[in-house]
Write a protein that binds this DNA or RNA. Structure first.
Lengths: 171, 171, 171, 171
DNA sequence: GATGAATGAGTATTCATTCAT
DNA sequence: TATGAATGAATACTCATTCAT
């Protein structure tokens, strides 16, 4: 809390005027970041024409998020005090809201026959997991290193849409 | 450390005969688990005929791992004290070794024309992320709930191989 | 201080316009309560004909005080922060003034041959202690419970005047 | 806790090996002191022939206690953390056990016709209050001052047995 | 004068680490 | 070798006090 207060530019006691304990600070930080992430995603998704285009928007928003929010990410991992209360309930809660956005896109894609029939619950997690791990590298970039967002976006979409298999639909 | 010593059936002081500090205990635990995970995976992978079959083996081994090692997983997440020392370097290190196995399978698949050309670095992370998040639910299963491993395996493989797109090669 | 200010109907900062610190607030509160207690006692004592009647007045005023000033009493016991600054000097100071009133009654009683010769310093404390502890129960009365003031007064006076011994002067 | 640990000659952490929190330290200290006080009193009381002699024993034991346990008394008044949880429940609890001893003596005295009929509950508090306040002075004695225990004992017993009234049984 | 947001010294509690036995 | 009692640095939280408005 000392450090958080210092970074926030207020006193330790001041933190407690707005939050009752560290858990609440944590939740507020996670909640705020997740909400802005989702609203960024939702906005860009709305602009997409096809479901595929929308998925691509989610990817690009996530990449931006990872580029900007490194610090917050570290805080989220350091987490609130004590054991990982069921793996940081707040994080899981926000994750689930994010998964809902993805599921929405999948539903639309299936309706439009852009995507094939599939277990959407799982497919959403599939996409989310792939996205998070692939973009996770952004947290470990050194000063000089480059991260070609456009290329990552392209390749990720390709894998998501066509899978690994040779002779897929793209042929 | 009290709890770790108790579970290990030795004294707290005894722990320090074998490890210099908590970080080392953590690293040993993670290292051991990851190694056995990898060797289980490697063994089963060797039995697979096709690259696809091998990827499927990775999935089934991971599911077993998650079912058996819940406790360890919590420990890994609770982690050593303090902030995510560069996101738990040891975990990342072991992850990278695991990614290497996956990359190996991908290479083979591409060579055999089973899989198409792709950025293997990214594809490995893609597969790994999807696998981890989809199987992460196993950590939150309640006593009574069921987890149909065979079905999960099936669906995951299908998504990995053919992607989301309608009219893929499976048709 | 937050709570005190709130109860006083002014702002926390305002408290510091009238008092320099919490200790002074405490002293003022104790002083005020003690003074009004003493003046109530003194007035009723003046109306008493005999010394015994006057002692009885002290008892009845104290009972009223305890009934009305519970809250204040808790505050006095919670006290200012830290260790009992020589057992709350202010409280002792006010106690001593109260003891003086009792001593005055005893003197009068002895002069009038109502009371026998005795160490008045001690006798005053004797009376005061008995009074405070017996009436202390008032602080712990539950909502429904009854406290028969008249009966308490009667019994206390009887003990004070005649003591425990069988075959005392009342016979 | 820092200070308590220092005085006890152990480390702050060490305190927590034996007590779970400050409240428990407080209770243990009060409990221990009260128990030894009561057992001292009980022992000396057993030696007394008459009920009066027994009451006198209680007085003399209490005087010794006050002389020896000043420090503890200060601690008890500084109390555990927070507000006077219903006036320090533990203290009240121990006080009640002490009152029971006094009541026992009173019962015996009444049975033997040494004492007259009276409300023993109240009489016990009466005696206890008088005793505590009269002997409370011991806490404030300066270095040079004298406290004549025998004289205090004598006078207190006289007041308790015969009361204030002129022409009592002592005549 | 009056306010209440902001401060930071102070305190109870935890837990990785040590060391006498 | 093995133990576990003891340590003390670290940390979340409180609350009397201040001061810009």
């Amino acid at each position: 809390m000392d450090e958080i207060a210092a970074r926030a530019g207020i006193s330790k006691g001041g933190l407690y005027l707005y939050f009752n304990n560290k858990e609440e600070v944590f939740q507020a930080a996670v909640g705020y970041a997740a909400e802005s992430h989702r609203s960024d995603a939702a906005k860009k998704v709305r602009e997409g024409k096809s479901a595929a285009e929308k998925l691509r928007s989610v990817i690009s928003v996530h990449i931006e998020f990872m580029e900007e929010k490194r610090k917050l990410f570290y805080f989220m991992m350091g987490g609130s005090s004590g054991p990982p209360h069921v793996f940081q309930e707040k994080i899981m809660e926000e994750r689930d809201k994010f998964l809902a956005i993805i599921r929405g896109i999948l539903e639309e894609g299936i309706r439009r026959k852009e995507f094939r029939e599939m277990d959407m619950e799982m497919a959403a997690k599939f996409f989310f997991g792939a996205l998070v791990v692939v973009c996770g590298d952004l947290l470990f970039m050194k000063e000089g290193e480059e991260f070609n967002a456009a290329a990552v976006e392209e390749k990720l979409m390709d894998l998501v849409l066509k899978g690994f298999e040779e002779g897929g639909g793209s042929a």
